[in-house]
Amino acid sequence: MKSFKKNPSDLKGHVGDVAMVLRIALTGRTNTPDLYEIMQIMGRSRVIERLRRHL
């Protein structure tokens, strides 16, 4: 985060941006509980299935 704030043009994005894309792809919402917990509850097969839908 410190590197990103110092030189945002050197990096393509922030990990929070990636997390938001995953959150929307998996749940269809922008506001959810912890993403890791959501994925654990959904299970591997359902997570993979939903991610493949959005490729």
Rank of each mutant, 00 (worst) to 15 (best):
S3W: 00
S3T: 13
F4N: 00
K5G: 03
K5Q: 12
K5R: 11
K5H: 12
K6E: 09
K6Q: 09
K6M: 05
K6C: 01
N7M: 00
P8S: 09
P8F: 09
S9V: 11
S9W: 00
S9F: 05
D10G: 11
D10F: 08
D10L: 11
L11I: 12
K12W: 11
K12E: 13
G13M: 05
G13I: 02
H14S: 01
G16S: 06
V18G: 06
V18F: 09
A19E: 12
M20K: 15
M20H: 10
M20V: 01
M20W: 10
V21H: 07
L22C: 08
I24Q: 05
A25F: 15
T27N: 01
R29L: 07
R29G: 04
T30H: 08
T30F: 00
T32N: 06
P33R: 11
P33L: 13
L35C: 07
L35T: 01
L35R: 10
Y36S: 13
E37F: 08
E37H: 12
E37S: 14
E37N: 13
I38R: 07
I38M: 04
Q40A: 11
Q40D: 13
Q40E: 09
Q40R: 09
Q40H: 09
I41P: 02
I41L: 09
I41Q: 15
I41E: 14
M42Y: 03
R44I: 13
R44H: 10
R46I: 14
R46C: 09
R46E: 08
R46L: 14
I48W: 04
E49V: 12
E49L: 14
E49W: 01
R50P: 00
R50I: 09
L51K: 07
R52S: 13
R52G: 01
R53V: 14
H54I: 15
